[in-house]
Write a protein that binds this DNA or RNA. Structure first.
Lengths: 139, 139
DNA sequence: CTAAGCTATAGAGTGGACTCTAAGTCAAGG
DNA sequence: CCTTGACTTAGAGTCCACTCTATAGCTTAG
């Protein structure tokens, strides 16, 4: 069975070895085995687990929350409900974030247009004018 | 013309007065005027500017980047191009974030399903079984 | 006229997530 | 044998974005 050193895993996951050791210190990698002289020995399954950690991080979950999940995994089937609930909650969180970003995108789009017009006119003043001449536009 | 105290603005924008003073200290609010005895006097336009700051923050821009934008605003029409470029770049950044979150959402969805099935079976083992019986499914 | 309740400042403290340093261990190559 | 270059740990340092403390000033109600 193929194994990986910490720097190989770091390269694969595009993080530093420091980060992986930090995750281990925080209790995120209790499953990673060691050689007789203490070196970490990562298996494919460990990399898969790290991808799940990466995914949870991408949802905005803090390290402590991810640790709770890892602990639940270690506890086995008794925690299936908690883990399910967690993912359902994460799903909602991600959906909220997407909605927020879409709102933000709308505002940014307006600003792009605003500056495109200002640039064409050579001055931002066109918009201050606009507000006086056509106070209906919300800008 | 209606003006607002720092705590009124804080309430409106749903942040603390500490945060607003911090923003000011970081140079994000050079336009906010003061009373004779040094108290900040926020106008409607200042609140509008703070909403733009809020929007830039929502795109993931750090305080220093926002400060650069505010400085450009103070510099007038000579910086219209920079400001336009900045918003175009922010737009791209937000789009990237939305795409990433959508990918994440897909993974989370899989996990929801995974745990829903495990929960129905009463054990996570169903999935380890799956991998042996039907190694085609990517899980 | 004084206490409450706001405001202000400088600067210290917090929490999160790394990121790095120092000192040491081990295996392989010349 | 010794150097090189991985790896290990504990713990210090960094960066960011607040968050708060201490101290003080102004204004208004009782």
């Amino acid at each position: 069975m193929k194994t990986y050193t910490i720097s190989e895993v770091a390269k694969v996951l595009n993080v530093t070895a420091y980060t992986l050791r930090y995750y281990d210190k925080e209790g995120l990698l209790p499953f990673v085995e060691r050689t007789s002289n203490g070196q970490r020995l990562f298996k494919e399954a460990d990399i898969a687990a790290l991808r799940v950690i990466e995914c949870l991080k991408a949802t905005g979950m803090p390290i402590k929350g991810i640790k709770r999940f890892i602990d639940w995994c270690s506890d086995g089937d008794a925690t299936l409900q908690q883990r399910f609930d967690m993912f359902v909650e994460r799903k909602a969180a991600v959906e909220r974030q997407i909605n927020e970003l879409q709102d933000t995108l709308g505002l940014i789009d307006h600003k792009c247009l605003y500056y495109k017009e200002a640039l064409a006119a050579g001055t931002e003043a066109v918009h201050k004018q606009d507000k006086i001449e056509i106070p209906v536009t919300t800008n």
